[in-house]
Design a protein around this nucleic acid. Structure first.
Lengths: 200, 200
DNA sequence: GTCTATATGCGGATAGAC
DNA sequence: GTCTATCCGCATATAGAC
C-alpha cells in the first residue's frame, strides 16, 4: 500500500546499474559465480531479483560485466600510479595500490573466481584475455622486466589467496596464521589488517 | 534387464570410495564446489548419483574429503622430495614436484577453489588449516627461510592461476599467451605444456 | 554394495502490472 | 524504472528394492 509519502526510489538507469554492479561484485567475490545468487545480489543492492536479471539479461552477463568493471578499475589504478612517476619504487607503489583495491569489496576476489573458471567457454575466454591485458600493461607500459613481472603477479596471486582464505580473521587467535601473514605479506600486512574491521 | 553374463560391478567400499574421490577431485577442480554436481561426479566415477551421496553423506562432506585427500598428497609429495636430500636445489625440486601434481587432474585446482571459499564457516576453516599445514611444513620441516617460503608459495599460486585459466590452451594460437607463460613459468613450462594433451 | 524412483527446495528467468 | 507473482528446471537428498 504505497502512498505519495513513500515514493518508489527511482534513479537513472546508469546509476542503478552501477549500484547493482557494486553489490554483485561483493557477492560474486564472496561466493563465486555459481555460489552467488541473483537474489543475494538484489538484496545487497536493495532491488528486486527479477529486476537484476532484467537489467543484465542473464546472471552470466552480469558476472561478465562485473569482471570487466573490475579489470577496468585495476588497469586504471595501475595507470594512475604509473602517471605519478616511474622510479625504482614503481613495483612497490603498484603493489600497494593493488592491495588498496581490496577496499572495493570483492573486486579482486571476483577476478580470482573468474581465473578459476578457465574451462568455461565464455567466462574462461574473457578472464584469460583480462589477465593478458594486465600482463601486457606490466611489460609494455610499466616497463617491468620478465622477472619483475613474474614476481609482481605471483605476489598478487598470493595476496588474493590469503584474502580469499580470510586468513586475517585468525590473526589474533591463531599464532601460526599471524606468522604466516607476516611472512607472506611484508610491507602489505597493515593494509590487509586494516580491512578486517571494514568487512563485517 | 540384467543377466548373470553382465554382473553389477561390485567392489570393496574402500576401492569404490577412492574411485569416487578421484572423480570428484576432477569435477570439483573444473567447476568448483558450487558449480560441480553430484551427478557429474557420479557419471565420472561410473556409479549412480544417489550412491555418491550415500557414501559421503552430503556434497559438502565429499568436498571436504576431496580437500583432505589433496592436502595429504601434497604434503606426502613434499616429504618424499625432502627425504631425497635437502641440498640447495630443494626449492627447485619441490617446485617441480608441485607442478607434477597437476597430472592428478583437479587436485591443485580443487584446493584453489577451496582457498577462494574462506568465508564459508566449515570449508573456510578446513582450507585455512590446510594452507597453514603447508606453510608450517615449509618453515619447520623443509627449513625454508621466510623469504623462501613467500616466494615458493607465491609461485605456487601463480601456477594454480595459470592452470585454472587454462592459459596453455592458447599457447599455440595466441602469441601473448605464449609469452606470458614463458615469463611466468620458467623451468616449469615444459611440464605444464605436456599436460595439455593428457587433459581432453 | 548399488540401483531406481522420487520428494523437495531453490534459483534463474518470464509475464505483466504500475 | 521497478515491482509482484509465478513457472520451470535442476540438484541434493531420501526411500526402499535387489
Amino acid at each position: 500500500m504505497r502512498t505519495e509519502a513513500e515514493p518508489i526510489p527511482r534513479m537513472r538507469a546508469e546509476d542503478r546499474r552501477e549500484l547493482v554492479l557494486e553489490a554483485a561484485t561483493g557477492v560474486f567475490g564472496e561466493f563465486g559465480y555459481f555460489g552467488a545468487t541473483t537474489d543475494q545480489i538484489a538484496k545487497a543492492a536493495g532491488v528486486s531479483q527479477p529486476y537484476v536479471v532484467r537489467m543484465f539479461g542473464t546472471k552470466e552477463q552480469l558476472f561478465l560485466d562485473v569482471l570487466q568493471r573490475a579489470l577496468d578499475r585495476l588497469l586504471e589504478t595501475f595507470r594512475g600510479v604509473l602517471a605519478q612517476g616511474a622510479g625504482e619504487d614503481l613495483g612497490l607503489r603498484m603493489g600497494t595500490a593493488y592491495v588498496e583495491l581490496l577496499t572495493d569489496r570483492g573486486l579482486l576476489l571476483s577476478l580470482m573466481h573468474g581465473f578459476a573458471m578457465g574451462s568455461d567457454p565464455v567466462i574462461g575466454a574473457v578472464t584469460r584475455d583480462g589477465f593478458l591485458q594486465v600482463y601486457k600493461f606490466l611489460r609494455e607500459e610499466a616497463g617491468f622486466t620478465p622477472e619483475q613481472v613474474r614476481m609482481f603477479i605471483a605476489n598478487g596471486m598470493l595476496v588474493n589467496t590469503l584474502v580469499g582464505l580470510r586468513m586475517s580473521d585468525e590473526y589474533d587467535t591463531n599464532p601460526l596464521a599471524k606468522e604466516c601473514l607476516c611472512v607472506a605479506l611484508p610491507e602489505k600486512l597493515e593494509l590487509v589488517l586494516a580491512l578486517r574491521e571494514s568487512q563485517r
